[in-house]
Amino acid sequence: MARRRDLADQQQRLSAATWSVLAARGLPGLTLRAVAERAGCTTGMVLHTFADKQALLVHARELLHWRTGQRADVAQAAAGTPRAALRAVLLQAASPTEEKREEARVWVGFLAAALADPVLADLHRSYNRRFVDRIAALVAAACPDWPSADCAAAATSLVALVEGLNVLAAVDPATYSDEAQHSAIDTALARLDAPL
């Protein structure tokens, strides 16, 4: 039992180190050596957990998806109505705070890397489609009379809006401030013609 706990602790430590390196150095700075230094271990220990840099990148992308998904789950559960749940999840996906802009910068790095890496591209598509599906289900709950095709189209538009805000806020937080992001999301939601 202790061995499993040790492995879990090691993975958690390496996950935290991976995220710390990504946040500080971006995707180009994510190396096995940098993660080992940040975790206070050897590259051999990193390689014991991750076979190579590709495995480390996949893990980091999965970690990003898990982190954002956990926050969306909490936001959705705390909302009182379907429309409020939709708004809460969209706002949670936006990047109005420095921590969220940091995540957005990491996400943009993964998106850029996915253009040349089929494994990362598959992961990106899979996670993005899950997000679109989640938003489509929330739109359907908020607009129960809508056909599923309209819910899917609205979800695609809302996800594109939020992801665009993320990218732009990552490099221009003054223009794409918290207020500007909230306003853009609320304006898009007002077009749904569903009661709050």
Rank of each mutant, 00 (worst) to 15 (best):
A16E: 12
L32Y: 00
R71Q: 15
Q54I: 01
A113N: 10
D172P: 03
A194Y: 14
T18G: 02
L30K: 05
T97V: 08
A184G: 11
A24K: 14
A136L: 05
A149S: 12
G80V: 08
L115H: 14
A93L: 11
G26S: 11
S126E: 15
S95Q: 06
R38D: 08
A2W: 07
L86Y: 03
V119K: 01
R71Y: 03
L168F: 11
A153N: 06
L57C: 11
R71N: 05
R13T: 02
R191K: 04
Q70P: 01
A39Q: 04
A160K: 01
W107I: 05
R13M: 01
F131A: 09
A17G: 06
E37A: 15
A121E: 15
V35I: 10
C143V: 15
H59K: 04
A55G: 08
A17L: 04
L47M: 06
A113V: 07
L14P: 02
V46S: 06
R101E: 12
S177A: 07
L32A: 08
V159K: 04
V108P: 00
A16K: 03
L115F: 04
A169D: 06
T42M: 00
L22I: 06
V106P: 07
W107C: 04
D122T: 12
H124T: 14
L91R: 08
A8G: 00
L189T: 13
H65V: 12
C143A: 13
V167M: 12
R105N: 13
V35Y: 02
L57M: 15
T156C: 05
R25P: 05
F110I: 13
A142F: 10
I135H: 00
A84I: 07
V21F: 08
A188Q: 09
P173S: 11
Q76D: 02
A121M: 14
V108M: 11
T42L: 01
R105W: 08
A149R: 07
A75Y: 09
K53H: 13
T68F: 00
L30I: 10
V89S: 02
R3I: 05
A24R: 15
N166C: 15
Y127R: 09
A169V: 07
A174W: 15
L168I: 09
R83H: 13
A149V: 12
A75H: 11
D150E: 15
R13F: 00
D186T: 12
A121R: 13
L64W: 03
P82F: 01
L158D: 05
L57P: 03
D6I: 00
G109W: 08
R61T: 03
A140M: 10
